[in-house]
Amino acid sequence: MQQIISFLIKNSYRMLFLLLLIISVSLAIQSHSYHKSKVINSANYVSGSIYSQAHKVEDYFDLKTKNEELALENARLKKLLFNQKDSIKIDLDSVNQVKKTDLVIAKVIKNCYTDQENIITIDAGRKEGLEHDLGVINSLGIVGVIDNVSNNYATVMSILNINSRINAKMKKTNHFGTLIWNGKNTGYVQLIDIPRLASVKKGDTIVTGNQSTIFPEGINIGTVNRVYIDTETTYYTLEIKLFNDMTSLGHVYVLKNVDRNEIKKLEETTEKDKEKR
């Protein structure tokens, strides 16, 4: 005991310093409560920065799988989006909730845009449940309609095809027209047969209409770039600037309308009935 006391007295200067240092440092740490977490954080910062640097390199190796994952996720989200309940007929629909649109993700393996009749090839086919006349879109807008299907592949009639006919409408006024391509510019398509009653302005958005079973309503197509009156039909013809860059396509989504066969059958029977009369 005496030794301890004599030690303390001998080193009183150092002891006093240590005592005061402990007080002041603890004050400094307590006054900023974040200091506590910072002590832990800065320790982690060393290891964390090393880890993040290493991870940056590793990330490059699985970029491809990451891309596929993201595309799948997009497909899921788009499915959710297209299957939104129509708020007007909400009561009728809620009785039996049927999925109206299904999505298949596919990759463009051949994209042609130099011809008049452009065909895109995608790497999904009958195995994925694709068939003739399904709509194909990507994240920006519509791409085309499925033409031929094999087991593993399918060809898509691009919207840049002079034979393509797609039902489209003005987003604002719901006036319908038919989307064609005049075979000239890959960035522009034409919307014909818009009635003269419609008030059309440059910059208006054009989306897919609800008259076809190929595309669900409201998928983006492009904006109005130029408006002129067709001399023969006296309807408006709109030049549409596509949202999509058709010359660079990566992943696309094929839309499967679940009710399509039912609708088709119904229409066919009606046609037959008409002929009988």
Partner: peptide
Amino acid sequence: LLISAFLLGLIVDMFQDTAGIHAT
């Protein structure tokens, strides 16, 4: 000197709302 330096820092801390930093 030690005690007065500690007090000096502590008082400056009081003015600056930085308890303990100047004192240390």
